[in-house]
Write a protein that binds this DNA or RNA. Sequence first.
DNA 1: AAAAGGTACTATGCAATGCAAGGTACTATG
DNA 2: CATAGTACCTTGCATTGCATAGTACCTTTT
Lengths: 122, 122
Amino acid sequence: MDLENAKVQMRKGILEFCILHIISRGEVYASDMLEELTSAKIMVVEGTLYPLLTRLKNSGLLDYKWVESVSGPPRKYYILTDTGKIFLEQFGETWNELQASVNQIIHESFHHHNKESEEEGV
Amino acid sequence: MDLENAKVQMRKGILEFCILHIISRGEVYASDMLEELTSAKIMVVEGTLYPLLTRLKNSGLLDYKWVESVSGPPRKYYILTDTGKIFLEQFGETWNELQASVNQIIHESFHHHNKESEEEGV
DNA sequence: AAAAGGTACTATGCAATGCAAGGTACTATG
DNA sequence: CATAGTACCTTGCATTGCATAGTACCTTTT
């Protein structure tokens, strides 16, 4: 895996988390989300985003409504469903656990020696 | 994607990063790595680790040597190659950028308003 | 009215990784 | 020789992000 591919692989699972978060703040359409992602330096394009939105809609995490645009074609504005909100909360915990796990490994300068308090992992 | 599947997806790309880090500290064999991962609450088993080690070896990031065990079959002890060390360093930057990106999105409470200093993203 | 440009969205096959399950081999012990 | 424990290997599958090609709506220009 070269570095560009590593970045692609690292985005798996995480892109969905980001999208759900962006939508959780209020009604947005695809272009808003792309701007938000670009601002955060997560470079994705429409061809990546739309299939993901479709998957999330089909999974029951999102809903949308068509809104006429003042200029150009109508837009799909997305919101989270109740299921989506619950899932996002759990997703947040998973992200925090993953971060903690990775950071524990990369900052560990000595081999671990305490094995107690082993819990369910990521 | 249910939560368990989300965890699987989130590990894509990141598991390799963790493994490279663990190996970077000194010669280790598979069981050491599994303990380290378990300690950090990243639950993987041999069936996941061995194919990954094979891929990393084939990519030139790792090398190994057989060492007789005091009890039981001989073990493969892994070390990073020079290529692997360079790649790990770049991977670390990628991880930091990804974390910063995700945390920017999940902690943003207002829509972004400053678009300057856009750089290459993850 | 038709053509062109811009914007929004859709569909689909591919690449790659983590996973699960089944397997082989070596060593020590009974 | 058989069994148990340990170490490692193989392979097909599930899933997501990606790239590419495409359709459709609206405004502007010809």
